[in-house]
Design a protein around this nucleic acid. Structure first.
Lengths: 296, 296
DNA sequence: GATTGGCTATAATTCAGAACTATCGTTTAA
DNA sequence: TTAAACGATAGTTCTGAATTATAGCCAATC
């Protein structure tokens, strides 16, 4: 497999536009087209197909994109090591905003202090994280998963329960535990439709025939807590959130525990720096629980 | 970096002979020569130098050889996965004979049963193992080390003490512990000169001014025990050896404990199968100690 | 529904550079 | 001293990669 094919494909797969990719590569559009054709013929699979006016990568094309990225990163850092004696590698970690804020803080500072490599961060929804990892853009992802994916390698990371947050003055604030039934008639601050957390809330409350309504739709734990503070309703948030003083949080035992997973691309070859990042993450995987104990 | 350069260099670096490597690659000798020159110019370092009539790889050449091997293995297994949906990868483990016999048995059978990949084995002396790993021929090595090497990544594997083995009828056999002083006047079965174990024996007994002499020089624990059985002398062997019924083994507290290390090439990118092998090895690293307890 | 713009795909042509042949220089063994 | 084996370099040939030109396809626009 010729490396210039891979190089060209990597650029092409970013834009999915032969004309512009060719410009970027300083070759003509037909030249690029031929390279991609040869590559496709060599691997024996179509790498893209047309969807109306524009192009889309096939599954094989996506895998090839990730592979090409890996190879080029490896080559780059090997060359640096050979020429300078050492290399600053790039590692990319993808996760949700809340995950970074509350779950990964210690792991990240551990990695930064012990390793000389450069950490790149990507934040996004659960499906963004999966995309990042599958495309090779991120080397590691931390996220809950609700479906299994053949080409992901998962490893249980940390288990996080849910709790109900309300102003200290709220009637439920005096109880020890809160059943979902008691949410009857309440206004809730929830994530927007089709986000996993919202779907779960919908389903659970629907099953229990709880009558509730939406107060605000917002997609960040921080903002949800902020709106609770302003008396706009109650919120169901991850157990790892730091609760402001004016508010009260009560565990919701009926809510299923969320399994965060450390995900990588299966069959990927990890560079040294990636292993270091993974080690730091695993080492601190349940560290947030200690933090909470100390606070209480 | 053009991949055909790497491919050619991989073949060349095996034989260090342009003429024969060129034949193998089905190109002319000058063509190969130009490729290697271009590669060398690209990385900015000489890859080999002349030593009299024949050629030798430089340090950079060796690193490049290992890198080229990695890349080609990765490409091969990626292509298999893309085309067939799955790949049988090759993993190579290098260690001493005794290490395989007594230390790695469980780890290897665990790997064989849980993984579908192909395990290749190389046996050799300590320095062979290091060479195998540095050249990329072996992905993992298990061996004691007596010098640190910048381009090796080491990880403590298992600690093994030493014991003195003798026929049941020997006067020392009735003691509980044996001091090195009591070896005065004995005939010993030892490894050949310049093997690390022999060097250690020489040094320690020399320091204590113990008067001893060589009975047999032989380089396998199995054979050493066999010669002890035939009454040819005593032997100092690793604690992990299985002692035949007719013989008696006594611990030698004065002998330093040997630290076995799991070694890999630093900065190497491990394929999936290599991680699996490493996990299996680590999981069973001290398993031989349980085995021994059961026996006693 | 004809027309235009933006893009992919293919064919024909040109040109760069890879491989070949020939040959010289070096090293060692006969 | 000579011959054999092998690496290095120069000059020549020729393969195959890049270019230009252009046909073909799809969707948006009037």
């Amino acid at each position: 497999m010729r490396s210039d094919w891979l190089e060209s494909f990597l650029v092409f797969s970013d834009t999915l536009n032969f004309t512009r990719a060719a410009e970027e590569l300083h070759i003509s559009q037909p030249a690029l087209h031929v390279k991609i054709s040869k590559l496709s013929e060599y691997v024996g699979k179509p790498l893209y197909h047309k969807s109306g006016r524009n192009l889309l990568l096939t599954a094989e094309g996506q895998q090839l994109q990730a592979f090409a990225r890996d190879q080029s990163e490896q080559a780059a850092s090997f060359l640096q090591i050979l020429r300078n004696g050492s290399a600053v590698q790039d590692v990319c970690l993808s996760a949700g905003e809340g995950t970074f804020l509350y779950l990964l803080g210690d792991a990240i500072s551990a990695f930064m202090s012990r390793s000389s490599h450069k950490l790149r961060i990507r934040t996004g929804t659960q499906s963004d994280v999966v995309k990042d990892v599958l495309s090779g853009e991120a080397h590691v992802g931390i996220t809950p998963l609700d479906s299994v994916n053949e080409s992901l390698a998962c490893r249980p990371y940390s288990e996080v329960g849910q709790m109900l947050v309300m102003p200290a003055a709220h009637p439920l604030a005096s109880k020890r535990k809160v059943g979902l039934k008691s949410l009857n008639g309440e206004r809730l601050i929830v994530p927007s439709e089709n986000r996993p957390h919202r779907i779960l809330i919908n389903r659970l409350l629907m099953d229990l025939k709880v009558d509730w309504n939406v107060s605000v739709e917002v997609d960040s734990w921080e903002l949800m807590l902020n709106f609770v503070k302003h008396g706009m309703g109650l919120a169901i948030v991850n157990e790892y959130c730091q609760i402001p003083d004016e508010l009260v949080a009560k565990p919701l035992p009926e809510f299923p525990v969320i399994q965060f997973q450390l995900i990588k691309r299966r069959h990927a070859s990890d560079r040294w720096a990636v292993n270091e990042l993974e080690a730091a993450l695993i080492e601190h995987k349940d560290h947030w629980k200690n933090e909470r104990k100390k606070c209480q």
